[in-house]
């Protein structure tokens, strides 16, 4: 089943330059795609589009279909319902989107209350359940904490738990692991893969980390100056990239045991 279809999507912020320029791709249920590219390439713009965030008029062309329904045709109420229930987003630093003076549990409550019609006890059950799923220890303490009392990795896992809690079919991630330590990053990647395995969740992840993208995705898209310059199965994009830009990006990644930096000094 086709979950997401992006067709010729173009967005401009200043009326002159296209932050997204005729971007087209689609995702079937249970697929994982990663969009890579450098800062300012338009990766986040596409994600924001899927959540219906751009102001009217910014979208100059194309459309985004979610379960076949055009996002531009949704009313404000429909959009608010859609966000969270059908599509959820994990941000780079969940901590920044949290209210610093409100306990984690309280913020989780208000998120659930907006979307679900259930009592306090049911809400707490859901909250603890999902925090456990992202392997947060001592869930009661986490819910009772203020955001600053948790480590960055823990806050990020809270963000993932919240995003997962309404069982959205499509989960978006805007650099979801980039602010994390390497060991925590590996954990979060594993958890996102588990989501697909257990619940058939479709994932669209934006990242600048080619290695993470290569590891977790079925499809890779490469963006450059607003254009999706490459889109294909991960093995193909990594193994035989079509564009020079993809080649350059792949070549720039420094792997363990890379000696080219030291070689520059030897010349």
């Amino acid at each position: 089943m086709e979950i997401l279809k992006v067709e010729n999507y173009s967005v401009t912020y200043d009326g002159e330059h296209n932050a997204a320029d005729h971007v087209s791709f689609s995702l079937q249920e249970g697929e994982i795609a990663c969009i890579v590219g450098e800062s300012g390439s338009g990766k986040s713009t596409v994600l924001h589009g899927i959540l219906g965030l751009p102001s009217p008029g910014a979208v100059t062309k194309g459309r985004i279909l979610l379960y076949g329904k055009d996002i531009a045709s949704m009313s404000r109420t429909e959009l608010l319902k859609m966000r969270g229930e059908q599509v959820a987003m994990i941000f780079q630093d969940t901590g920044r989107y949290m209210n610093p003076i409100s306990r984690v549990g309280h913020q989780f409550d208000s998120f659930l209350r907006y979307h679900l019609d259930c009592g306090k006890e049911e809400m707490h059950r859901i909250e603890e359940d999902y925090l456990q799923r992202v392997h947060l220890p001592d869930t009661r303490r986490v819910l009772h904490s203020y955001p600053f009392e948790l480590s960055g990795g823990m806050r990020q896992r809270v963000g993932i738990a919240m995003a997962m809690s309404l069982k959205p079919k499509l989960l978006l991630g805007d650099e979801p692991t980039s602010a994390l330590d390497v060991t925590v990053q590996a954990q979060v990647v594993r958890q996102m893969l588990d989501l697909r395995k257990k619940y058939g969740t479709t994932l669209l992840i934006v990242t600048h980390n080619m290695s993470v993208a290569a590891y977790m995705s079925d499809y890779i898209g490469v963006m450059q100056q607003g254009k999706l310059v490459e889109w294909g199965r991960t093995e193909e994009v990594i193994g035989s990239p079509r564009t020079d830009y993809t080649k350059k990006l792949l070549h720039s990644v420094i792997g363990l045991g890379d000696i080219r930096i030291k070689e520059t000094a030897a010349i």
Binding site: V182, T183, Q185, A186, V189, N209, M210, S211, V212, A214, Y215, T234, E235, I238, L250, V253, G255, L256
Partner: peptide, 8 residues
């Protein structure tokens, strides 16, 4: 925990 491009 380090990912590299050929890890898939």
């Amino acid at each position: 925990s380090v990912f590299s491009i050929g890890d898939k």
